[in-house]
Amino acid sequence: MNLSLSELAKKLNLPESTVERWIKQGRMPVHKESGKCIFNKSSLIKWASKHNLKFMIFEENNKIGDDKKELTFLSSMENGEVFYDVKGEDIYGVLENAVNKISSFDENQKKDLLAKLIERENLTSTGIGNGIAIPHPRVPVENFSESAVITCFIDGTVDFNAIDGKPVFILFILLSPSTKEHLSLLSKLAFCMRDISFVEFLKSKPSKDSLIEKVSEFENKS
């Protein structure tokens, strides 16, 4: 088959000048004819693997990277659910009730998640102040493809040992498949929580739709 020099170089993931020089020096089974690189596909693939190079000839239809949506707080909100009037006397009670409400989880998963959340809570409180807490597992959740934020408005308030000592009225349970996404989610959440007007808005216990609307406003701002 034949390709132009730049296409061939891209497929081999090498600089064009290197490929051109190797062809000239006769180091690869390709030869040039009026600007085109002509080669036998199987022998080139063989050559490439012999020299620890990759020849990505089938790459064209493979677009994993582009399909993936960019991770945003908004999309995670949409993935998760919103619960109102979650009951509970203390941290553990609230968490247990919250986890039990998650509809997409079976019993085992719920148990597992709850244990992880409590484990994290015992380390230090996840109450980040202003009446907000963000419970999350210490290690990423297994078998989990997309990040989700589960929002739980607590019935009344609960003492969460938060850093500023204020009782907590809302939980954002962060579930993410990797530490990297978790960090990015956390930083985006923190960005919103810094805004007093947003906190006030949360205290009004808005519906899921209006919550998401507000969040998307914030996303666009940043």
């Binding site: 290197t18 180091r27 690869m28 012999k50 020299h51 620890n52 190079l53």
Partner: peptide, 10 residues
Amino acid sequence: YRKELKVQTT
């Protein structure tokens, strides 16, 4: 350098 060496010597 490694790639080059490999290509040049084998």
